[in-house]
Amino acid sequence: MRLLEVQDLRVSFSTDDGIVEAVRGVSFDLDRSHTLGIVGESGSGKSVCTQTIVGLTRGATVTGNAFFDGVDLLTAQPDELRGIRGKRIGMIFQDPLSSLHPLYRIGWQIREMIQAHDSSMTRQQARTRAAELLGLVGIPHPEERLDDYPHQFSGGMRQRVMIAMAMALNPDLLVADEPTTALDVTVQAQVLAVMTRLQREFGTAIVLITHDLGVVAEVADDVVVMHAGVVMEHAPRRETFYHHHNPYTEGLFDSLPAVGAGRRRLTPIAGTPPSVIDLPPGCSFAPRCPYAFDRCWVSEPPLARVFGDVHHWSACWLPADLVARTAIRDRLRAETAAAGETAEGAAS
């Protein structure tokens, strides 16, 4: 059995402007000791999707299943969930400041958290465990720092405290929403190193939301690419980077400044992500897609296997065959290059 199996998850919010279909049928699964990276532009539904799984979305209409070790988190009874959330599933949020209480000492906050889930622990045991955890995430002199307040810690240290708290009970699953986005690269590297080391030690499965494709290349085993509430592509890391099928994934990579390419023009994705209220029929990416053809405007492509690889899925009407798909891409590139040259020729 997979540790986590999300099936056709749909989440919508009713607002004054209409129904916001934030997540429109997301499925993925995850094994122990594995890291799933979720990427996509702002508003694509990454946070809503994972927050719903861990039970943090309020006022939403939710359908689908999210099996965690066989228990459906979306329909389980509250007391069954209490034993899972926070204890077997740890969470790290994007903003470390808002998730630590500013008026309580760091040590107290970690202790409370431990004792809430494990009432057999004495105060002293919980304190010792808290210090141990701070040491584990690389905070110097953890015993002394237990009595500090959050503001006495730097951003990177606070984020490491959040990891310590999320990892406190050796969870089977860690859900981390942009855990390093607010951090400098050197601190980000520290935090990622801590996460992967804990994963190696305890076999934790990690869902990592990030907008940074570099971070994904560093730590993810599999990658889910989201756009307008759906999974556009789901593949192992190397396939995502080197043999993507979906035009949206291709667009994300073409937008990146490439190493060694110098001051060349980048190729941004056209337009902006669509509003997820009253989405028109067809593929949500069609209005931005350089490959869009008749069918794309009429019906929404399902997430289907591509390139003859059982682990590679893409939601796109383009051919699922590697040779055919590559030929189409090469033709588009040649056309774009030719158009660019004529435009330049006309201008000069």
Binding site: V185, Q188, G214, A217, F241
Partner: peptide, 8 residues
Amino acid sequence: SALPTPDP
């Protein structure tokens, strides 16, 4: 060396 590179 800390810069994540989008290239596995």
